[in-house]
Design a protein around this nucleic acid. Structure first.
Length: 429
RNA sequence: GGAGGGAUGGGUGAGUGGUUGAAACCGGCGGUCUUGAAAACCGUUAGCCCCGAAAGGGGCUCGGGGGUUCGAAUCCCUCUCCCUCCGCCA
């Protein structure tokens, strides 16, 4: 959420920046409503001041045994006026809030201006896509033929966009989770958290998923419980409503969770394989930082995520999202894209964002700064470190051999009991 | 699921209709003292919103929402969360 005062004072700048994001019209009657709101507020507050003053006089009068009847009568009338003005002001206030809550974050000045993902800018590459001396298979063929992945039975018990991992397939999923958590906690200094996978709507408001994107979420019937679409939601909101000491920053958290997304509106997109699922697992990185350091922290967070892919030997590139491709809460985002032979291209496997104070304002997360002890909003960042399902399939595809087996990256072997090669499984799947 | 008890500022915790935005203590900050520190003592210390160029003034906020009243931290309704006991349960 943007600051009301900031929007008021920088209306044209805000409009222009939103326009860069492809958003327009949201602030059409902002000025009118804002002025009306203040007009009614002033009228109400002037009368409240009078009422407070007279209430004191009534108290004194009564204590002295005097007659306050005429004053009480006057206050009764005044009270009715206050109600009227309060109602008018509140209506405008609600309108403004509704607008503010739905305005996306403003892009940072370093974000490339563009309409869509087409205008994202490649920042760097790591690794060389492998040249296959045979026709590589996509993971949705390799997985089932190895007996480690089953979409048909998943569809039977749940539906489309679900997967069942079996045997070494299930173990690989678990190995990746442990491996990634170990890298981030032991090498990068993140604190491991295991949060609830279910949160309430206030929490989803805090990180910006609500109220605008509820159709992307799964809601539990008859409750205010929602399945988390990413661990960013519980992790960032861990400190909602709190005032933290500035010395305690940066706070660096990581968590392995399942993530649940309705994927409404993605019909026909990535229907094959593991790329787009209703449930997937992810290790998430979240940082709470001072406003001054958040862009440095974004760089290191992006490197922390990339390190996972480098250790696994998976070629990837980093792209800076253009203004038109930015997520709702983000001021700047780097995507990590891993090389996938089945796509003959790079596909998103991590998204690292600096949300500046956008989420902190919604969730009311502050720090106490300096000696005077003034509070200020901190900055929040998040990034996948990284998506496990997509890593799973990237390994299957990139490390496949001509005989249909898959070479296990060295760093993962200790997590798989020393397994070096995945060969067709003989269990019942 | 049943019965009861709670929620107050950065923290602990007083306060049951009228100068209480809130005692006291702890913590923080500034100062006195000290070579320095500690101790002691003195002072200071909530957030948001509105008017104003500023100085300053005003409003709102005691878990959330609604109500009673001239006036609510205090009374009523409701929701949420926490605690205790009983029941059930991985």
């Amino acid at each position: 959420m943007l600051d009301l005062g900031y929007v008021r004072q920088n209306l044209e700048l805000v409009r222009r920046k939103l326009n860069d994001r492809g958003v327009s019209g949201l602030l059409a009657d902002f000025e009118t409503v804002d002025n009306e709101r203040r007009k009614y507020l002033v009228e109400a507050e002037r009368r409240k001041a009078r009422r407070n003053q007279v209430s004191g006089e009534i108290a004194v009068l009564k204590k002295q045994g005097g007659d306050a009847a005429s004053l009480v009568a006057e206050m009764k009338l005044l009270g009715a006026e206050i109600d009227d003005f309060d109602r008018e002001a509140a209506a405008r206030d609600q309108t403004l809030r509704a607008v503010l809550e739905r305005i996306p974050n403003l892009p940072h000045e370093s974000v490339p201006v563009g309409k869509s993902a087409e205008e994202n800018v490649e920042i760097r590459r790591w690794g060389e896509p492998r040249q296959f001396e045979f026709e590589p298979k996509p993971h949705w063929e390799l997985g089932p033929s190895l007996g480690i992945l089953d979409f048909d039975r998943a569809a039977k018990i749940a539906g489309a966009r679900f997967a069942v991992y079996a045997g070494v397939g299930a173990q690989l999923e678990r190995a990746l989770a442990n491996f990634m958590l170990d890298v981030h906690t032991r090498e990068h200094g993140y604190t491991e958290i295991f949060p609830p996978f279910i949160v309430n709507s206030a929490t989803l408001f805090g990180t910006g998923q609500l109220p605008k994107f509820k159709e992307d979420l799964f809601k539990l019937e008859g409750s205010d419980y929602w399945l988390i679409p990413t661990a960013e939601v519980p992790l960032t909101n861990l400190y909602a409503g709190e005032v933290l000491l500035e010395e305690s920053l940066p706070i660096k958290l990581c968590a392995w969770t399942a993530c649940f997304r309705s994927e409404a509106g993605s019909y026909g997109k990535d229907t094959r394989g593991l790329i787009r699922q209703h449930q997937f697992q992810k290790v998430e990185l979240v940082k709470l930082t001072s406003p001054e350091s958040s862009y440095d922290e974004l760089e290191s967070l992006t490197r922390d995520a990339g390190r996972v892919l480098e250790l696994l030997g998976l070629p990837y590139r980093v792209v800076a999202l253009s203004t038109g491709d930015l997520g709702f809460s983000s001021a700047k985002t780097y995507d990590l894209e891993v090389w996938l032979p089945s796509s003959e291209g790079y596909r998103e496997i991590s998204s690292c964002s600096n949300c500046e104070a956008f989420q902190a304002r919604r969730a009311n997360i502050r720090i106490r700064r300096g000696k005077g002890g003034k509070t200020a909003l901190l900055h929040t960042l998040n990034g996948s470190g990284v998506a496990i399902g997509r890593t799973w399939l990237a390994i299957i595809e990139n490390c496949q051999e001509s005989d249909g087996s898959v070479r296990v990256p060295e760093v993962l072997q200790p997590y798989l009991g020393g397994l070096q090669k995945i060969i067709p499984q003989t269990h019942h799947l």
